[in-house]
Design a protein around this nucleic acid. Structure first.
Length: 414
RNA sequence: GCGGUUGUAGCUCAAUUGGUUAGAGCGCUGGUUUGUGGUACCAGAGGUUGCGGGUUCAAUCCCCGUCAUCCGCCCCA
């Protein structure tokens, strides 16, 4: 057995897994670009306070899932557990107010100390999109339609359902919160122990409890709509109208809540039933108060994040493409000459591979195994005549080509 | 943090109620006469049965512990 093991919850991504992973990020960047999002890269770690304050001290992410440590200078550092807080910090640090409305996209690694499970890792990767500095529901619409188009182009249109809710503005939210607390406190006796906890920390979370007893209670719990302020109601109305106009299907889920404290108004999740307990594939919402709370001026914003691993698990395996050309030299002199030929083909933009060992037969077998399109065979007799054998591996046709005309002969394989 | 599942070759899996030298397929290496791939055939390498302890004449198999894995709770992407 090998001495070293992966740290639990981490993965080594290779081969088909890597292709799936790349397929997700590539489609993400392509679609985001069409919407005018600009790519941004922020640090993998931040001052601990950046996350602790913004996500909410009582949330599980902050309370028990962060990778936090003191660096050699004695500062408390945290590996990013999510994107938004770091991006908000970057916005403040760099004075990006000047670019409002700022449409940003990013992807990269996140770290959360959780029990690993299907679709849940300790180091995982997210794609992320944010629009900073716009109070209008149009921004929410654009973000949701970005996500929907992304899922569509990944071929997941019918595997995923958009759940939509509003948490209202601050006023509505605290009104709703107290009516929920009143309701559940009255039924305290029949709540699960988990939910008794939630009643203290985050009563909204009781709404999506999986406990059957809780769910029965939740059926009759008050819903947000009755606590919604007029402005919050209008905001949500305008959002849903636009989604209807764009023909984006959604399910109104009044029990959809979000785990992080900074959300308000719009909350949404794209959910699948194909991944066991980890159904949320993209989730996000509006966070009008976050940047102000972090010391900036009032900067209403929206955003979402998607789990790359989860998306990668759902998509069809990308077709293996190989357009490569393989050089097969035989004999010492040819081996040396082959290097030069390979180099000039590569400079000309061809994808050329070259084995390092084996006789002609082995090299041909290798070329075949890597699904190459053409083999270039170069031996002593070819060298003498200044030619090279070009063999199409799918048709098995082979012809001699002058070395000087090789590039044009290969132009169809570029 | 709580509950359960599984751990045998690089990979996917076998091995009768505990019983000789732990097998197969794929992959890998070499070969089936000179410089031509896919198919077929032959041969070979590769294992401290996760690790540690216990029961037994005898443990891959039973028991305990431990590590890892996967699944559920929790939480979230």
């Amino acid at each position: 057995m090998t001495k070293y093991q992966r740290v639990p919850g981490t993965r080594d991504i290779f081969g088909p897994d890597m292709q799936r992973f790349n397929a997700v990020t590539q489609v993400f960047c392509r679609v985001g670009c069409r919407f005018g999002f600009e790519e941004v890269a922020t640090p993998l770690f931040e001052d601990t306070a950046v996350f602790a304050k913004s996500l909410g001290e009582a949330t599980d992410v902050v309370g028990k899932e962060m990778y936090t440590f003191d660096d050699r200078g004695g500062d408390s550092i945290t590996l990013r557990p999510e994107y938004t807080a770091g991006i908000a910090r970057a916005y403040l640090s760099n004075g990006w107010q000047q670019h409002i409305p700022l449409k940003l996209m990013a992807y990269g690694a996140m770290f959360r100390y959780e029990r690993p499970q299907k679709g849940r890792f300790r180091q995982f990767h997210q794609i992320d999109a944010e629009i900073l500095g716009t109070p209008e529901p149009q921004a929410d619409v654009e973000l949701i339609s970005f996500a929907a188009m992304l899922l569509d182009e990944l071929g997941l249109g019918d595997k995923v359902v958009l759940n939509l809710n509003t948490l209202g503005d601050g006023e509505s939210r605290s009104a709703y919160r107290s009516s929920l607390v009143a309701y559940f406190t009255a039924h305290k006796a029949s709540l699960s122990s988990d939910s008794l906890d939630r009643l203290e920390k985050n009563p909204l979370r009781i709404l999506d409890s999986k406990d059957l007893g809780d769910q029965a209670l939740v059926m009759d719990a008050p819903i947000i709509d009755s606590s919604l302020s007029q402005t919050a109601g209008v905001f949500f109305e305008r959002l849903t109208q636009a989604l209807d106009a764009l023909n984006i299907q959604y399910v109104r889920n009044p029990r959809l809540v979000r785990g992080l404290d900074y959300y308000s108004h719009t909350a949404f999740e794209f959910i699948t039933t194909h991944l066991g307990a980890q159904g949320t594939v993209i989730g996000g919402g509006r966070y009008d108060g976050l940047i102000e709370q972090m010391g900036g001026s009032h900067t209403p914003s929206v955003g979402w994040a998607g789990g790359i691993e989860r998306l990668a698990m759902l998509i069809e395996e990308p077709a293996m493409v190989s357009d490569s050309i393989v050089m097969v030299p035989t004999g010492e002199a040819a081996m040396l000459a082959a290097f030069g030929v390979v180099q000039s083909l590569r400079k000309a933009g061809f994808r050329v591979e070259q084995g390092f060992s084996g006789n002609l037969k082995k090299r041909m077998a290798k070329a075949n195994a890597m699904n190459a399109k053409v083999a270039l065979i170069l031996g002593d007799s070819e060298l003498e005549q200044g030619v090279i054998a070009v063999k199409d591996l799918s048709t098995a046709e082979q012809k001699l080509v002058r070395l000087s005309e090789l590039e044009t002969a290969l132009s169809t394989y570029r």
